[in-house]
């Protein structure tokens, strides 16, 4: 039976050269099939935490388990096997400049062994319809607006239907209607695939409409971890201020 805890951080600490710790002893567990919203003020360590989960960064202390396997000491080749189960959307999309939109979306599929041209084209078209950009296959990333790039990034991150998906600001730069559409679509996809998702977003109001659980990072510490309802009802003044967008408070 696969472990119930898909992502587990135990006492994770991360510091960059000449700086204070970005993460200080973070304990966090994301259960299977959960859509986990990770929130917090700027520079709280949210993006760093996602990069640790996917093995792009290594923690200075603590253990990080993916499906029960501690990945902190894995070499690059073993990490690749873990990453093959993870999809990720970067904050700035990280689209490959030298590829068309279609090639960008098809790239993870090709690397996963999908070679049938018709199947690839259908999957690419499906992803583009999902992000409301049908017919964009032959466009180059350089010719897209910021919002369009973000949507193509979402399309690529979801192309493989990975077991674990990490989204760093999936709706940044999008108009409210498209933003809500993206959140709803990602939620529907996550439910359909039973995927475990960690989503970082500054659009708290919309994010909390789709999350199962919420964690709040503040100054490198996880100061809240609970259900979305518990977050909305939290009496911690920092959580209360942040999730309700109040201007007065300790933050």
């Amino acid at each position: 039976m696969p472990p119930r805890r898909v992502i587990e951080l135990r006492g994770i600490t991360k510091r960059f050269v000449d700086g204070p710790p970005v993460l200080r002893g973070v304990d966090l567990t994301v259960p299977r099939g959960c859509l986990y919203g990770l929130v917090g003020p700027g520079a709280a360590g949210k993006s760093v935490l996602l990069k640790l989960v996917v093995g792009l960064l290594r923690p200075d202390a603590g253990a990080l388990l993916i499906e029960g396997e501690d990945i902190t000491g894995l070499d690059e080749l073993r990490l690749h096997r873990v990453r093959a189960r993870i999809g990720m959307l970067f904050q700035n999309n990280a689209l490959f400049d030298h590829m068309t939109v279609g090639e960008n979306i098809a790239f993870p599929l090709r690397r996963a062994g999908v070679t049938d041209a018709a199947a690839l084209a259908e999957r690419v078209a499906d992803r583009l319809r999902m992000v409301s950009l049908p017919g964009f296959e032959d466009r180059m990333p350089a010719g897209l607006s910021g919002g369009q790039k973000k949507r193509i990034g979402v399309a690529r991150a979801t192309a493989l239907k990975a077991d674990i998906v990490l989204y760093d600001e999936p709706a940044a730069g999008l108009d409210p209607v498209t933003s809500q559409k993206i959140f709803d679509t990602l939620r529907a996809e996550q439910r359909e695939a039973g995927a475990t998702v960690v989503m970082v977003s500054s659009d708290i109001e919309r994010l909390l409409t789709i999350t199962d659980r919420v964690g709040m990072l503040h100054r490198g510490r996880l100061i809240f971890d609970g259900t979305t309802a518990e977050a909305l009802a939290s009496r911690d003044p920092r959580v209360d201020q942040f999730v309700h967008g109040k201007t007065d408070g300790p933050l």
């Binding site: 996917v54 990453r83 990720m88 970067f90 700035n92 990280a94 993870p108």
Partner: peptide, 18 residues
């Protein structure tokens, strides 16, 4: 360099590509 600062290299790694 551009691929590094725009995280395209990191994106390759997350796609399990060396």
């Amino acid at each position: 360099g551009t691929m590094t600062v725009t995280e395209q290299i990191a994106a390759l790694e997350t796609l399990a590509i060396d």
